[in-house]
């Protein structure tokens, strides 16, 4: 086995696979995230636009951006995190690139993303 095969074997066998819906940059999603407070566990929702998916395999992450009271908030989630309860895809966006960082500079009406026609 070469290095790549070994890494794949480890990631397939050691890290638990998460079944998440397919989404990509430009989509609007809601992440249901488990938060531990002392002994209690509750679920927090984070809804926003996916800016990018970075990395691969077990260490893959995605960035979600939302506007909270005129201030942009971005959060990075690991795809295989056990704290992600589930992900809802609210809207499929039409964007021309895999990483839409240009969205950070845009405000108001310009920051809209066209929705994909079904």
């Amino acid at each position: 086995m070469n290095k790549a095969e070994i890494m794949k074997y480890v990631e397939d066998n050691v890290i638990e696979k998460r079944e998440l819906p397919a989404f990509k940059a430009g989509d609007t999603i809601t992440v249901h995230y488990k938060i531990k407070e002392g002994n209690k566990e509750r679920i927090q929702n984070f809804q926003g636009v996916v800016l990018q998916r970075a990395g691969k395999g077990a260490t893959e992450t995605f960035t979600v951006r939302k506007i909270s009271g005129n201030i942009g908030v971005e959060r990075i989630f690991p795809v295989s995190s056990p704290f992600i309860d589930k992900i809802d895809v609210n809207k499929r966006g039409v964007v021309r690139r895999a990483r839409i960082f240009y969205l950070r500079e845009l405000q108001g009406k310009k920051a809209r993303i066209k929705e994909k026609r079904k």
Partner: peptide
């Protein structure tokens, strides 16, 4: 071989 990350019992 390389690096990766795993999750423990506490997540």
């Amino acid at each position: 071989i390389g690096m990766t990350s795993v999750y423990d019992a506490d997540g």
